[in-house]
Nucleic acid binder design. Structure first.
Length: 426
RNA sequence: GGAGAGAUGGCUGAGUGGUUGAAAGCGGCGGUCUUGAAAACCGUUGAGCGUUUACGCGUUCCGGGGGUUCGAAUCCCUCUCUCUCCGCCA
């Protein structure tokens, strides 16, 4: 959510910033709404003042037992009630209108974010690792099906398209990956492990920015819950409607959760395999910081995610997203893309974003420095550390042997009960 | 799922439709006293919005949202949450 006061102070800068994201100039419309709203507030307040004064006098008259005087006063303000009702309704409506207009506007990019239309304009910042020599590289679903441990047909018969059943060591590998990631983030980087709900309410999803604009990307239960598309929603909303002590910042949270996405807009994309599913596991990283620490925290958070790939010895590159490819709530985003030999390309496995106070404002989450009277909205960051399903895909494609077996990466063997190689199921 | 009871400031907890933003206590902050501290005593202590160069002024807020009334913490409706009993359940 944007600060209407800031827009009022510098409408041109606001329009320029959103123009970089391809959003047409809206400040004049917003300011017109704001102006009308503030006029309505003043009108309502003047009427309220009159009413309060009259009511006080009536109260005094009645207190002194002077019914006649009270009656006269009541007749005097008889017409006020309707006017006031109308003024308050108008104010309420104008406020809602302004908020509705603001709530669908994307966040403004930081200055060092490159302009661009789509992913083709993203900038590669660095690259890590050298791809292994793999004879006859295959895609993960071919490898997994040949192992007899990745079953899309079974999943389709139970749940339909975009689901998978993992069996035996691949199921265990998925669990191992999640546990490994959580341990690194909690033990090496100081994130607090959380186990949040995955069914969430409107307010939470609004807070992080998926609502109201992207409702069609989410699943909704019949009784009005949303299935959380990412633990970003729950971890970030942990601080909603709170005033935190400045000294307690930063808060760093991590969680391994299932994530649910309708993939409404992606028909025909990645239809085979585990890359794009309705349900997947992800380890999420969320940081709640003060107004000065966001950009440094983004570098730190990204490093935390990169560390997972490095420990797994999976080659990857770091992309700085251009304005056209960034998510709704982000001011700046780094994507980590892992090397997939079977696809002969890099694919997104983590997205790390700095959101400024955009989500803090939507959640009404603030902090206050010791001894200070005023509060500030928290700044928020989130990133995948990592998407577990896609990491499993990357392990399969990068660690496959000529005979179709999978060498278990060193750091995962302890999490696999010592299993060093995944072989074809009997 | 059935029946019932609740939600008041940082915390505990009063509150009769009428100068109630709200008693009292605790806590916090400032002061007196003290070498220093404690104790005691005195004072002070919520948030949002609008307006103003500023001091200030106005207004809203007693879980959220509506309503009744000249006037609502107080009455009505609704939602959320908490608790108790019964039922069911991992």
């Amino acid at each position: 959510m944007h600060d209407i006061n800031a827009i009022r102070e510098n409408p041109d800068a606001f329009d320029e910033a959103l123009k970089r994201r391809g959003v047409a100039s809206v400040s004049s419309d917003l300011l017109a709404r704001d102006d009308a709203r503030r006029k309505a507030i003043q009108t309502a307040q003047e009427l309220q003042t009159k009413r309060n004064e009259a009511s006080k006098k009536i109260g005094q008259a009645k207190g002194q037992g002077d019914e006649a005087a009270a009656q006269a006063l009541m007749e005097e303000v008889a017409g006020l009630k309707e006017d006031l009702q109308q003024a308050e309704d108008t104010e309420r409506q104008l406020k809602a209108d302004l908020e509705a207009a603001l709530s669908v506007l994307a966040n403004v990019p930081l200055d060092d974010v490159p302009d661009g239309a789509d992913e083709g304009d993203n900038i590669q910042l660095r690259q890590w690792g050298t791809p292994r020599q793999i004879n006859n590289p295959r895609q993960h679903f071919e490898i997994g099906e040949a192992l007899g441990q990745m079953d899309f047909e079974a999943a389709a018969s139970i749940s339909g398209a975009r689901f998978v059943v993992l069996r035996d060591d691949l199921a265990r590998l998925e669990r191992a990956l999640g546990n490994f990631m959580l341990d690194v983030h909690t033990q090496e980087f100081g994130y607090r492990e959380m186990s949040p709900p995955v069914l969430v309410r409107d307010e939470a999803v609004f807070g992080t920015g998926q609502l109201p604009k992207f409702a069609e990307d989410l699943f909704r239960t019949e009784n009005g819950f949303w299935l959380s598309p990412t633990a970003e929603v729950t971890l970030t909303n942990l601080v909603r409607e709170q005033i935190l002590n400045h000294a307690s910042l930063p808060h760093r949270y991590t969680a391994l959760t299932q994530c649910f996405r309708s993939e409404a807009g992606s028909a025909g994309r990645d239809t085979r395999g585990m890359i794009r599913q309705h349900q997947f596991n992800k380890v999420e990283l969320v940081s709640i910081v003060d107004a000065d620490s966001g950009e440094a925290e983004l570098e730190r958070l990204t490093q935390c995610a990169e560390t997972i790939l490095q420990k797994l010895e999976l080659p990857y590159r770091v992309m700085l997203l251009c304005t056209g490819d960034m998510g709704f709530s982000a001011r700046k985003t780094y994507d980590l893309e892992v090397w997939l030999p079977g696809q002969d390309t890099y694919r997104e496995i983590s997205s790390c974003s700095y959101c400024g106070d955009f989500q803090g404002r939507r959640m009404n989450a603030r902090y206050r420095a010791d001894g200070e009277k005023s509060t500030h909205f928290v700044h928020t960051l989130n990133g995948s550390g990592l998407a577990v399903g896609r990491t499993l895909v990357a392990v399969l494609e990068n660690y496959v042997n000529d005979d179709g077996s999978i060498t278990v990466p060193d750091v995962l063997q302890a999490y696999m009960g010592g299993v060093q190689k995944i072989e074809v199921s009997q």
